[in-house]
């Protein structure tokens, strides 16, 4: 086991059972992510990027192979233990996935409340994170009262609040305009500078070419390229 990896995929395959037979989303993926990496996962829609992140979050189970998180095989987490894994990972989704019944403040506080953090700590941390993402003046808004960019910033704040070791971002800019896209990317870079490993799945050529960080390219379920300072080539 390689100890300097936060995340390690060993020969991972995922095959979905569909009505038309089997559909291989990932085939024999090997991948190691070092701490404080900013890893972009590039590839066209349907190439398997989302499946990769879903496997990491335990939303899907691999058909074959092993996935390690800090040396722990995540296949060993049962459904009821899965929350413990997920609390160490922050997730940002393309469709934001904010709780529509809760205000911005409550959405972010939720991630701390669910692990039993004291109220005092929550009252201290949430405003700080909201300031970091620039939503200090929208704390009492409900998600439907926010713009797309604001929603994504709120969801980034939620992913950050419990200081996870890794942040997974699945097409976080997919629903945003150009200006908001760069806001989000800059925010992710800032978070990475503060020491958090980031895995960003995107099909946005511009983002990847501008980041100038490690890039793996997936096509039809296979990793076809893995380069430091990579570019979007397909």
């Amino acid at each position: 086991m390689v100890h300097d990896s936060v995340i390690e995929f060993k020969n991972v395959s995922k095959i979905y059972q569909t009505n038309n037979g089997e559909c291989a989303a990932l085939t024999k993926v090997d991948l190691a992510v070092r701490p404080k990496d900013f890893l972009s996962v590039a590839g066209p829609s349907g190439s398997g990027k989302s499946t990769l992140l879903k496997l990491l979050l335990g939303e899907e189970r691999p058909t074959d192979g092993q996935i390690f998180f800090n040396g722990q095989d995540i296949a060993l987490f049962s459904t009821s233990e899965m929350p413990h894994l997920r609390r160490r990972i922050g997730t940002i989704f393309q469709d934001f996935k904010l709780l529509s019944n809760k205000t911005v403040y409550e959405n972010i506080a939720f991630a701390m409340e669910m692990v039993g953090k004291p109220t005092k700590e929550i009252e201290q941390d949430v405003p700080q994170v909201l300031e970091l993402v620039g939503l200090s003046d929208k704390t009492e808004y409900f998600p439907h009262q926010l713009s797309g960019g604001e929603k994504q910033r709120a969801s980034i704040a939620r992913a950050l609040i419990h200081r996870p070791e890794v942040i997974l971002a699945d097409e976080p800019t997919g629903n945003l305009d150009l200006l908001n896209t760069w806001d989000v990317v800059r925010l992710l870079l800032k978070i990475n500078e503060l020491g958090t490993t980031i895995i960003l799945a995107t099909h946005d050529r511009e983002i990847i070419n501008n980041l100038n960080r490690r890039v793996i390219t997936i096509n039809r379920g296979k990793v076809i390229r893995d380069e430091e300072n990579g570019r979007y080539v397909l």
Partner: peptide
């Protein structure tokens, strides 16, 4: 149902 799955994905326990 979406809210419930979101809560699961951000790591809330079932009873919570």
């Amino acid at each position: 149902r979406h809210e419930v799955s979101v809560m699961r994905l951000v790591g809330a326990s079932n009873w919570y």
